[in-house]
Design a protein around this nucleic acid. Structure first.
Lengths: 358, 358
DNA sequence: CTGTTAGCGCTTTCAA
DNA sequence: TTGAAAGCGCTAACAG
């Protein structure tokens, strides 16, 4: 079929030396044209090489390249649950940013299991990703990653681990403060799983703001649950059947809030009239729930950009780079507005971090 | 620091030959113990090697291994939008199954853009994944993947492309049939994007079942929209303001249904009383919407298992392996049950495919 | 401007 | 039971 092919070799993919042979040049020259350097190539030669590549349907082998360059051009991401819309959004943004920078993305799902988290990290390290971003389940977890740069997307307790964290406590404070302004007197907290990074910070932000507003913040106003719709449902049923019943709840994530809303419906509790709700995350889902959820928005773009830059060595690996969050008002808190930001849309992400301390 | 280290070399990760040197064996022996073969190793020797590996924190380099073995132990997945819960679930299941089989997963998000889909596929092929699973945007798209095995998770129009498809038409028929049994006389269809794989099959299933029930199935009962919440909202507003207004809608995906539900709320239309709704996908989200969505469930586990087996060469790459779907009844169709399967929970996935033809 | 060549870390045949 | 050595496809000195 191909007259220039020296032997009737079995169908295999073309390598760089096939291209070199067909173009009548050395393999080095092929490299030079593929990589646009590091040496110049005569225009005519380049054309011949390009033509040979086309003819042979040549595709550089990224594995060989990775071995040679000690750089896989790939980043890894490990999340507790990729079907959770927040992590889905995170993965999407990372995939995009990585792709633009010429990196592929390897994804591991830890199923909210520490053992599995370790195994996923191990797998990605073995595959020699150039950097690893992990949303962990335990603030003290410290997987052995050799020399692979890692940044955690959550609060760390161990020293020397790079991380980018949103200002969880401040977000919680903003939420509770807002609820208090709606004259809610008994603000519950549907918290994340006990021990998970961020859970404590969100809880103490809740507590602090409640106390500051002269409101109770006892243990029986809190219930912990996994970051899932079902977790929110089960915890919501429990919380809403305690007496006295809370007249507002600050929920640690959007998916849990979805569960809480269902619990409220089951119990015939009207939201926001009888129960105001504010969640954490601010995924697109909040717009479509009934009522639309007021929530503390995590700026996923910024989080990912920051983490990626750190992990790729373009920016120093800080121990806890902090990102501000911002309350986005919808209906579940009792406000009338369809959507409004606090304090001001124009200062998004800047002023927010110190706005709700009162 | 390490007395056995011959030179004070810069901190780099240990290679197999470091281990060999430290254990006083050849590199081949290290391979034998790492891989448990292909040659036997004396127990004492094995111990020495294991100890050396531990001491040096040795980790096999999957990139080198991949180059040598011509097998990356990785699979690729390309989806239109990983933040869509259906694709999130798909990714999760694939990641799990792949991991269990010793494979990593590379993920590409095409942003529902054909150009980008091609680029993502190209990237994964370049990274030499052992198999590629793609949820495409166009039934005729045919990316150049060289010799990489690909299976599409949707209807194909080009010949010779492996795919596993759910029985879209049958699912649509089941949905419409059920709606008709609720005495709905004007059943609209909120369809997927025009030209997307599966869109036509779902639409013709809708049409067929409507006509079979003596109901209208004209073009003005249909509106196409992207697979997103927002797409469903915009299309829903349009569909629900046509007159005469439909008294039921079969929606092509869960996320779109979420949008439609919001549109109904905006317009003060009660679901299911004034508008019955059935969606397609059956993600967990359907349980938590208000009202809970009756939907045609895609058996993600089976889909993924089938595709993975094909792509990994454990099963012949059929041109359109078909998977049955099943209607899961909740509230949005007008039924009272909280959850019930049709025809029978015990025969899930078996009987369903031919149940709704009447 | 182009070619030769030495590895990157690993597997595996072949010989000892 | 162990070791030597050839290469997987590529990059980048270095030499011409």
């Amino acid at each position: 079929m191909d007259p220039a092919e020296p032997s009737g070799a079995a169908r295999r993919v073309a390598t760089r030396s096939d291209v070199a042979r067909r173009a009548g040049v050395s393999t080095a020259v092929v490299s030079y044209v593929v990589n646009n350097g590091p040496r110049p190539v005569a225009a005519a030669t380049r054309e011949r090489v390009l033509a040979a590549m086309r003819d042979l349907d040549y595709r550089p082998n990224a594995v060989a390249r990775a071995l040679r360059m000690q750089r896989a051009h790939a980043v890894g991401l490990v999340v507790p649950d990729i079907s959770n819309t927040y992590f889905g959004t995170l993965a999407r943004v990372l995939s995009d940013r990585a792709f633009s920078a010429g990196y592929a993305m390897l994804l591991g799902d830890s199923h909210s299991d520490l053992e599995r988290e370790r195994a996923q990290i191990e797998s990605l390290v073995t595959h020699r990703v150039d950097g690893l971003i992990v949303v962990s389940l335990e603030p003290g977890s410290t997987a052995d990653v050799g020399t692979t740069p890692v940044v955690y997307l959550d609060q760390r307790t161990s020293k020397g681990q790079a991380s980018v964290v949103v200002d969880n406590a401040d977000g919680a404070r903003q939420a509770v403060h807002h609820l208090a302004e709606h004259a809610r007197r008994r603000i519950g907290h549907l918290a994340g799983p006990e021990g998970a990074p961020g859970t404590a910070a969100r809880r103490s932000g809740w507590q602090e703001a409640a106390l500051a507003a002269g409101l109770p913040a006892d243990d029986d106003l809190v219930v912990h649950a996994p970051f899932s719709r079902d977790g929110g449902l089960v915890a919501g049923r429990e919380l809403l059947q305690r007496s006295p019943r809370p007249d507002a709840v600050f929920v640690a994530s959007d998916v849990q809030a979805t569960g809480l809303l269902l619990a409220a419906r089951e119990l015939g509790i009207a939201v926001p009239d009888e129960l105001a709700v504010i969640s954490f995350d601010g995924t697109e889902e909040t717009v479509f729930s009934d009522p639309p959820l007021t929530s503390v928005r995590q700026p996923v773009d910024r989080i990912v950009e920051t983490a990626l830059a750190m992990v790729l060595g373009e920016s120093p690996p800080d121990e806890a780079r902090s990102i501000p969050v911002q309350l986005v008002v919808r209906r579940s808190c009792g406000c009338d507005q369809t959507t409004q930001r606090i304090p001001d849309d124009a200062t998004a992400g800047q002023a927010a971090s110190s706005a709700a301390d009162g």
